[in-house]
Amino acid sequence: MLDQALVADAAGRPIRQPGRTASRDWDEVQDFCSRVYMPYRVRPLGHNLDPDATMRQARVGGVIVTRFAYGVPIHLDTFDPAAGNILVLNTLAGALRHKLDRSAAAVTGPGDSFVVDCSRTDYWLDGDGDHLQLNLTIPHDLIAGVAHRWFGFVPDDRLWTRRLAFGGQGSRWQALLSYVARSIGADGRCAGAMERHLEELICVDLLDAWAAGAGLRLADGARAAAPRYVREAEAILESEAREAPTIGAVAARVGVSARTLSNGFQRFRGISPRAFLRDRRLEGVRADLERAAPGETVTSVATGWGFANLGAMAGAYRQRFGEPPSATLARGHRRG
């Protein structure tokens, strides 16, 4: 099902790439990997080995999808936690051996997947010379936001530090990967609202499989688990996001100090109240850009949602949705 993933679209048209799709130069290959995954250390498992790399990429919202192989046996370690990324390594051919815990490793072959949050735990892997991957790079903050929207809370490190092998031939996850791959067009993107739908679907399905493998029930962490003041503050921040109320003012309205409110959000939601508000405002900006009337601009929409620093807003928007706000606006104008 994934033989042509990122090579050709569902109609058989070649999928355009922003750069080279193959390389035998270590520096070029590592530059690609640093951009689409994160900085890390690679060591070939042999003497005088040059790569014969496959390097293809596409975006599904904030998720980077890659078709990748080194073409030689390798060992990878020292993944940079500051990049803030989760890796989902889906094996198409060959095999990978992954760090599972201090004394155990997991081997994945064709059809198998492995997830690790490199922003929360260390990791290494060995790949044989025949490995070929269809990998996903997902920002931790993106999937944490999806968890909050769907389940009412952000899981703690019992989930994020769990390295997990999952999937398998015929699994729901494999079917989803096939659906995602077939939804990517010749331009390397998904059409319109489909992109957001797929981004959400990837994150929710991954969270479900990850939590099941970690022995956690996401439904048990529902909103009711948080204290009253956190739930009330969320309701205020959601309903008044456009006015961008101060955290101190919200804290006073729910009867606690700003420090208590911030500590409550961090404990029960895994994010700060300010980050929660920022995410709601970014979602509002995106919704308005998608239905913008002729003559509306990114500036007019963003300032209407309380953003004063448009450069910072644009950077956060691109990180959250995988495209600049101008691209969303252009798509909205075309539909209008």
Score class of each variant (00 low, 15 high):
Asp130Lys: 10
Gly19Lys: 05
Gly109Asn: 06
Leu49Ala: 10
Gly61Glu: 09
Asn85Ser: 03
Ala249Arg: 15
Tyr123Asn: 07
Asp50Lys: 06
Ala330Phe: 03
Ile15Thr: 09
Leu289Met: 06
Val180Gln: 07
Arg149Asp: 15
Pro18Tyr: 05
Glu296Gln: 15
Glu199Gly: 12
Ala95Asn: 05
Ala222Tyr: 06
Gly145Gln: 04
Arg231Tyr: 06
Leu96Gln: 12
Gly213Arg: 08
Glu200Lys: 05
Asp50Pro: 06
Leu206Cys: 06
Pro18Asn: 03
Ser262Glu: 14
Phe151Pro: 09
Arg228Cys: 01
Phe321Ile: 04
Cys33Phe: 10
Arg281Asp: 01
Val180Glu: 00
Gly170Glu: 08
Ala312Pro: 00
His197Arg: 13
Val204Thr: 13
Ala53Asp: 09
Pro110Gly: 11
Gln133Thr: 11
Ala258Phe: 01
Asp141Trp: 08
Arg331Ser: 13
Trp150Glu: 15
Arg172Trp: 00
Pro81Glu: 08
Gln174Trp: 01
Tyr70Leu: 04
Arg189Lys: 15
Cys118Ile: 10
Ala175Phe: 06
Pro155Gln: 07
Ala83Glu: 12
Glu238Arg: 15
Asp25Leu: 14
Pro14Phe: 08
Trp26Phe: 13
Ala10Leu: 12
Arg67Trp: 05
Thr161Ser: 14
Leu261Lys: 13
Leu261Arg: 10
Asp31His: 04
Ala95Lys: 11
Arg43Ile: 13
Leu237Asp: 02
Asp279Leu: 03
Gly188Gln: 12
Phe321His: 06
Gly336Glu: 05
Pro39Ile: 00
Asp77His: 14
Met38Ser: 10
Ala293Cys: 03
Leu216His: 03
His75Ile: 00
Phe321Gly: 09
Trp124Ile: 07
His47Ala: 15
Leu49Gln: 11
Leu237Ile: 07
Gln319His: 05
Val60Ser: 11
Arg253Asn: 09
Phe114Gly: 04
Val29Thr: 11
Leu201Phe: 05
Thr328Ala: 15
Tyr179His: 13
Ser183Phe: 02
Thr66Lys: 09
Leu207Gln: 06
Asp156Cys: 01
Asp187Phe: 08
Ile86Ser: 00
Asp157Met: 00
Ala219Leu: 13
Leu310Asp: 10
Tyr229Val: 00
Val65Ala: 13
Ser34Leu: 00
Pro44Leu: 00
Ser272Asp: 06
Arg217Ser: 13
Pro110Ala: 15
Gly248Ser: 11
Arg242Gln: 15
His47Arg: 12
Arg59Gly: 02
Arg334Asp: 14
Asp126Pro: 02
Ala211Met: 12
Pro294Gly: 07
Asp31Gly: 02
Gly109Ser: 02
Val42Trp: 00
Ala147Pro: 04
Ala104Lys: 11
Val72Thr: 12
Gly332Asn: 03
Leu177Tyr: 02
Arg291Ala: 09
Ala330Arg: 14
Pro44Lys: 03
Gly84His: 10
Ser300Phe: 00
Pro325Thr: 01
Pro325Glu: 06
Lys99Val: 02
Arg281His: 05
Ala219Ile: 10
Gly185Leu: 14
Arg231Thr: 03
Ser183Gly: 15
Arg291Leu: 01
Ile184Trp: 04
Asp25Lys: 08
Arg182Glu: 15
Thr303Pro: 01
Arg24Lys: 08
Val116Ile: 12
Ala225Glu: 05
Asp112Gln: 13
Arg67Met: 08
Glu238Cys: 06
Trp26Thr: 11
Arg320Glu: 12
Leu6His: 07
Gly152His: 10
Arg102Ile: 00
Arg217Cys: 10
Thr328Phe: 01
Asp3Asn: 08
Arg189Tyr: 04
Leu136Asn: 01
Ser326Met: 08
